[in-house]
C-alpha cells in the first residue's frame, strides 16, 4: 500500500528578491513498511520536501497524496487533524516539552487524540521499554542525554500509531554510539512493527541503514536507489 505519493511537486519561495525554486518537479511513491532516506547536500530541498510530506507546508504546484488522501488543497484545520492521526514527527533538536517527564511527553500526543488515560500510560510505558529507556520515564528531558531524548522523541512519534514517521536529520546532534543505538531501534520497529520511516539526512550512518535512498539535487530527484 502506498503511504506517500508525490507527483511533480514544485515549491517556489517568492518572499526573497529573487524567487527560490526549492523543489522542481519531484515525483516518487513510498510504500508501507519502507525505510527510506532522502539525502542530498544542504539546500537541495530535503527539509522543504519533508515539510510538504508532513502537511506542514503546501507545494506551489503538483500533487501530494498521503494514505490515499489528497492533501494538496487540504485546509490547515483539517491538516492538523490529519497530521495528528497519521504522521509521526522526529525532529533534529528533539523538541520535547521540557516541563514534562519522558512518560508525559510520550503520553501527550495520545491525549490530543483523546485516548483513555489507562491506555495512554500503558502504551507510553511499552514504547519507552522498546526504546530501552523505561527507567527514565519520570525524568525530565533536561536530565537525559541527547540520544535518550531522541529515543523519547521516537517513542512520542510512535505513540499516536502513525501510518509513517518523518524524521528530519534525527541523528544530527548525536554521537556515533547514540546514532547507532537509535538507528538499530528504528530498524527493529520497521522490521517487526512494519513502521514506515522517512528520513531526511546527510549522515552516512543513516544512509547506510536505509533500504531506499532518494537523492535530491537542486530541488530535483537525482537518483532513487532501492537496496535489497
Amino acid at each position: 500500500m502506498s503511504v506517500i505519493k508525490v507527483e511533480n511537486i514544485t515549491k517556489v519561495y517568492t518572499e526573497t528578491a529573487v524567487p527560490v525554486h526549492a523543489l522542481n518537479g519531484v515525483s516518487f511513491e513510498i510504500q508501507e513498511g519502507e525505510f527510506t532516506a532522502i539525502v542530498g547536500p544542504s539546500g537541495c530541498g530535503k527539509t522543504t520536501l519533508l515539510n510538504i510530506l508532513g502537511g506542514l507546508d503546501h507545494p506551489t504546484s503538483g500533487r501530494v497524496e498521503l494514505i490515499n488522501t489528497d492533501i494538496t488543497e487540504m485546509k490547515d484545520r483539517d491538516l492538523i487533524d490529519f497530521r495528528l492521526n497519521n504522521i509521526g514527527f522526529v525532529f533534529q533538536a528533539y523538541n520535547l516539552i521540557p516541563v514534562l517527564t519522558s512518560l508525559e511527553n510520550v503520553e501527550f500526543i495520545m491525549l490530543l487524540q483523546k485516548v483513555a488515560k489507562k491506555e495512554r500510560i500503558e502504551r507510553s510505558m511499552n514504547l519507552l521499554e522498546q526504546m530501552g529507556i523505561a527507567d527514565k520515564a519520570n525524568q525530565r528531558p533536561s536530565k537525559l542525554s541527547g540520544g535518550q531524548q531522541q529515543r523519547v522523541a521516537v517513542a512520542r512519534a510512535l505513540a499516536s500509531k502513525p501510518k509513517f514517521i518523518l524524521a528530519d536529520e534525527p541523528t544530527a546532534n548525536l554521537d556515533s554510539v547514540a546514532t547507532s543505538n537509535l538507528l538499530d531501534m528504528m530498524a527493529v520497529m520497521n522490521r517487526e512493527e512494519k513502521v514506515t520511516f522517512v528520513f531526511s539526512t546527510h549522515d552516512q550512518r543513516v544512509i547506510d541503514k536505509a533500504r531506499r535512498v532518494i537523492t535530491l539535487e537542486d530541488g530535483r530527484v537525482k537518483s532513487d536507489e532501492i537496496r535489497e
Binding site: R77, I80, D81, L84, F89, N95, P98, R156
Partner: peptide, 16 residues
C-alpha cells in the same frame, strides 16, 4: 517558539 511550533506540527490545534 520552537516548542509551540512542534506542538502545532504534531497536531495540537490552535485553539488548544
Amino acid at each position: 517558539m520552537r516548542e509551540l511550533g512542534m506542538l502545532m506540527a504534531i497536531g495540537m490545534t490552535k485553539l488548544r
